[in-house]
Design a binder for these strands. Structure first.
Lengths: 102, 102
DNA sequence: CCTGTATATCGGTATATTTCGATATATGGA
DNA sequence: TCCATATATCGAAATATACCGATATACAGG
């Protein structure tokens, strides 16, 4: 739980937007039939929605992952990203702990 | 309450450290006798503790103020900064609101 | 008004971040 | 094994941030 790394990851409006989008799978196109039972959204969908290049989004997802905000799972050629609610929660707790007066 | 500006202000370990130090006046040298009834800490004390240049600290305090984390009060040649607990609280609330699922 | 002290602002350099296109890697299928 | 697709990584250019020293401003006391 590196608060510095976490804040850097959040200090970008598009990365924060991605975390918001991931709250609800219906922000993205429907999953392919063979992926319907999987949690998470593939990089391509996120890229399309964000309107940035593939490499940028791949990099962003890596930052969010290292910061503990998303989990990833590889299935075939696809990587599916989803929110890490426990990681987000624990960051929030630690962050408030630091910021708020006691 | 600009969350972008607030996160930028917090995205620096020394600025966060300053907010922590300001939780407790005793982190700094005692106030001059004529300032004893005043709340807050003057820029010089903060600078000395942080070990950065005067201009950097003055700039930092300006960023923290614009972000709503500190209040300032001028008395004579001194500017006294103190935490804006309400501002900090309201940032925390808004931030969690955005970050946490629902 | 002149001087000294505290703080703010300016202008610059070094470093970090954003973002891209090109390329590398992984995988599934013909 | 060869090709197409999805994602990751690399290298570079543009922009932002971290700092500094120099200078400006604000004020207090003689």
């Amino acid at each position: 739980m590196d608060i510095e790394q976490a804040l850097s990851a959040l200090n970008n409006p598009i990365r924060r937007q991605i975390l918001e989008w991931l709250k609800d799978r219906s922000n993205f196109p429907p999953a392919l039939p063979e992926h319907e039972d999987l949690d998470g959204v593939c990089v391509g969908y996120i890229q399309e929605k964000a309107g940035l290049s593939q490499s940028t989004i791949s990099n962003y997802m890596g930052l969010l992952k290292k910061a503990g905000f998303v989990l990833s799972e590889r299935h075939g050629q696809w990587t599916f990203y989803r929110r890490d609610e426990a990681g987000i929660q624990s960051f929030c707790t630690a962050f408030e702990q630091e910021l708020l007066r006691k």
